[in-house]
C-alpha cells in the first residue's frame, strides 16, 4: 500500500515535469545554458574541492590521486605563520566591521537632517564617486598620499613637527591604511540603503516627537534608529558572514616585502601557494578551511540575531 503511494507521487512529479516541459519548453531552452554554466563554473569546482583531501597530481586527476585525509589541514595549522595569517585576517576584518559598519549609518542619519538641500545633494553625489574607482587606482592613490617625501599625510605630520614616516613600509600602519581607505571608498555607497530606509520612516512619529519637545538628537535615537533597525540587522548579518573573507585584491595590491608581517592574510596565502608554488591540494585545503569558517560564522550570526530580534536572512 505504502509503496504504491510513493510510486504514485513520483509518477506525479515526473508527469508534471513532462507536462511543464511540453508547455514551457521555451523557458527550459532559455535556462539550459545558464544551468550548464553553473554546473561547469560553480559546481565542478565544488567537486574539485575533494583535492583538499588528496595528494593531487595533474596527471592522475582528482579521482586518481591518492587520499591523504586531513594531511593538508594539519600542515596548514602547523606552519609557523599560521597564527600570523589568522591574526591578520581577523584584525583586518574585525577592524573593518567595527569601524566601517556604523559610519555609513551615522552618515545617513546626519545627511537626513541636513538643512541645505543643495549641500545634501552635492555631498551625496561626491561621496558615491569613489565606489566606482578601481581597486588598483585606489591603491595607487594610497601609495601617492602616503609617500615618504611628498605624500599629504607626511606633509601634515610636518606641520606638527613630526618626522615623516614611510607608511607603506611599516607593518603597524597596514591595518589603518587598509580600513580607512576602505571607509573612504565605500561609506557613501553603503549609506544609500540607509538613506532609502530613512525616507520610509513615518513622519507622524517625528511630528509626535517634535510636539513632545524632542531635540534632533533624541529623534535620531528614539525615532529613526528603531525604524531602520531591521535594515541594520540584515546588513550586519551579511557582514558577519564575510568576517573571514578579507578581499584578496586590495590586500594583494598593498602588499610589499616590508609589510608582509601585517599584510599576509589567508586569501593571499591561498594565492601564493596555489598559483605561484602550484601546490594545488594544499592551497585548496586552506581555501576550504577559510570558507567553512565563513559559513559557520554566517549561520551563527543569523541564528543569534534571529533569537534576539526575529530578523533573519534565511
Amino acid at each position: 500500500m505504502n509503496r504504491i503511494k510513493t510510486n504514485q507521487k513520483k509518477d506525479n512529479l515526473f508527469q508534471r515535469l513532462l507536462r511543464d516541459i511540453k508547455r514551457n519548453w521555451l523557458l527550459y531552452v532559455m535556462i539550459l545554458p545558464v544551468v550548464v554554466w553553473f554546473l561547469i563554473f560553480c559546481y565542478r569546482p565544488m567537486y574539485g574541492v575533494l583535492m583538499a583531501f588528496k595528494d593531487y597530481k595533474v596527471k592522475l586527476g582528482i579521482m586518481g590521486s591518492p587520499w591523504v585525509g586531513l594531511e593538508h589541514f594539519k600542515r596548514f595549522v602547523n606552519i609557523p605563520s599560521f597564527k600570523n595569517l589568522i591574526r591578520n585576517t581577523l584584525t583586518l576584518s574585525i577592524y573593518s566591521l567595527v569601524a566601517g559598519f556604523p559610519i555609513p549609518i551615522i552618515f545617513a542619519l546626519l545627511l537626513n537632517y541636513l538643512r541645505q538641500p543643495r549641500l545634501k545633494k552635492t555631498v551625496q553625489m561626491v561621496s558615491y564617486a569613489p565606489f566606482f574607482i578601481s581597486t588598483v587606482v585606489i591603491c595607487g592613490m594610497i601609495a601617492i598620499f602616503t609617500a615618504q617625501d611628498t605624500g599629504i599625510f607626511n606633509t601634515i605630520r610636518g606641520w606638527f613637527g613630526l618626522e615623516s614616516v614611510d607608511f607603506m613600509a611599516k607593518p603597524e600602519w597596514f591595518a589603518d591604511i587598509y580600513v580607512w581607505s576602505g571607509i573612504w571608498q565605500g561609506m557613501g555607497w553603503s549609506s544609500i540603503i540607509y538613506i532609502s530606509a530613512l525616507s520610509g520612516v513615518d513622519y507622524e512619529l517625528h511630528e509626535a516627537a517634535i510636539v513632545d519637545g524632542a531635540t534632533k538628537v533624541q529623534r535620531i535615537i528614539h525615532v529613526d534608529l528603531p525604524s531602520i533597525k531591521s535594515t541594520i540587522v540584515m546588513l550586519l548579518i551579511l557582514q558577519m558572514g564575510s568576517l573571514m573573507g578579507v578581499g584578496f585584491e586590495k590586500v594583494y595590491l598593498l602588499q610589499n616585502p616590508l609589510n608582509t608581517e601585517a599584510s599576509s592574510v589567508i586569501s593571499t596565502y591561498v594565492y601564493s601557494v596555489g598559483m605561484i608554488n602550484s601546490d594545488y591540494g594544499y592551497s585548496t585545503a586552506v581555501g576550504l578551511f577559510n570558507s567553512i569558517i565563513n559559513i559557520i560564522l554566517l549561520v551563527t550570526a543569523n541564528a543569534i540575531v534571529k533569537k534576539l530580534s526575529d530578523e533573519s536572512l534565511f
Binding site: C42, R44, P45, M46, Y47, G48, V49, M51, G241, V270, Y271, G274, M275, Y280, S283, T284, G287, L288, S291, I295, L298
Partner: peptide, 8 residues
C-alpha cells in the same frame, strides 16, 4: 555562499 575556491 559557497564556492570551490581559487585552484579548483
Amino acid at each position: 555562499y559557497f564556492g570551490g575556491g581559487l585552484i579548483p
